[in-house]
């Protein structure tokens, strides 16, 4: 599903963000990637989305070698991955419905299918009533749910969540994590980048700990072990 073989990524300005990382995430797994700022977590997400190219090493996602994917095939690759960000990244001038429908329009889904699928996703994240609201009218937790619905609407096989609870209070954070767990139970591989110790420890999932661009530990049913 996701395979990294001896991957390094250096930026032109400073020291390497990721150094010789190798890891394998199987289909249907739920994985936390933890670590402090500068540990390379976000670089890893960007490499998986092919927003960045590795300096060396190979990355395989859904069986495809990302080094050999042509530029025009990148959209197709990204459509197989749902992505959720800490700052939600919703389109501010569109309402909840249009934000989710947008992801479907991008892949040229017929309008009649969009009309069925979007309400279903809104129901899944518990926002069926708020489909007409604009992002600024929603709480942080609600905005993250919309982002989650948008990430899932195209039925991706992998969901990448980059600090999905970073801007949320504990209650909303738990609700989002419960949703992610539900999604994972449906067969979607979920990779959550976070530094929320409480959640990681309570979820009892696989935990990959990163520090300064290298993997410190990879525990099957782990806890947030790194102390800065």
């Amino acid at each position: 599903m996701i395979v990294l073989e001896d991957v390094s990524k250096s930026y032109s300005t400073g020291s390497p963000a990721i150094k010789n990382i190798s890891l394998k995430i199987e289909e249907g797994e739920f994985v936390f990637i933890v670590g402090n700022s500068g540990s390379g977590k976000s670089t890893l997400i960007k490499l998986l989305l092919k927003e960045l190219e590795p300096t060396s090493g190979k990355i395989f996602v859904n069986g495809k070698d990302l080094n050999t994917i042509k530029r025009k095939k990148i959209p197709e690759h990204r459509r197989g991955i749902g992505v959720v960000f800490q700052d939600f990244r919703l389109l501010k001038d569109r309402n909840v419905y249009d934000n989710i429908a947008f992801a479907q329009r991008v892949i040229e889904t017929p309008v009649k299918d969009i009309k069925k699928r979007v309400p279903a996703m809104l129901a899944l994240v518990g926002l069926a009533e708020k489909y007409r609201s604009f992002p600024k009218e929603l709480s942080g937790g609600e905005q993250q749910r919309v982002a989650l619905a948008r990430a899932l609407v195209n039925k991706p096989t992998i969901l990448l969540a980059d600090e999905p609870t970073g801007n949320l209070d504990p209650k909303n954070s738990w609700e989002i994590m419960k949703l992610l767990e539900e999604i994972n139970k449906g067969g979607t591989t979920v990779v959550v980048v976070t530094h929320n110790r409480e959640i990681v420890d309570a979820m009892n999932k696989r935990v990959i700990t990163m520090h300064k661009g290298v993997i410190l530990s990879d525990e099957k049913k782990g806890e947030y072990s790194y102390e800065s």
Partner: peptide
């Protein structure tokens, strides 16, 4: 710019 970035990250083609 941010809107374009979001579009690209969720799989929009250049022409879209």
């Amino acid at each position: 710019k941010e809107e374009i970035r979001i579009m690209k990250l969720i799989g929009a083609t250049d022409i879209f």
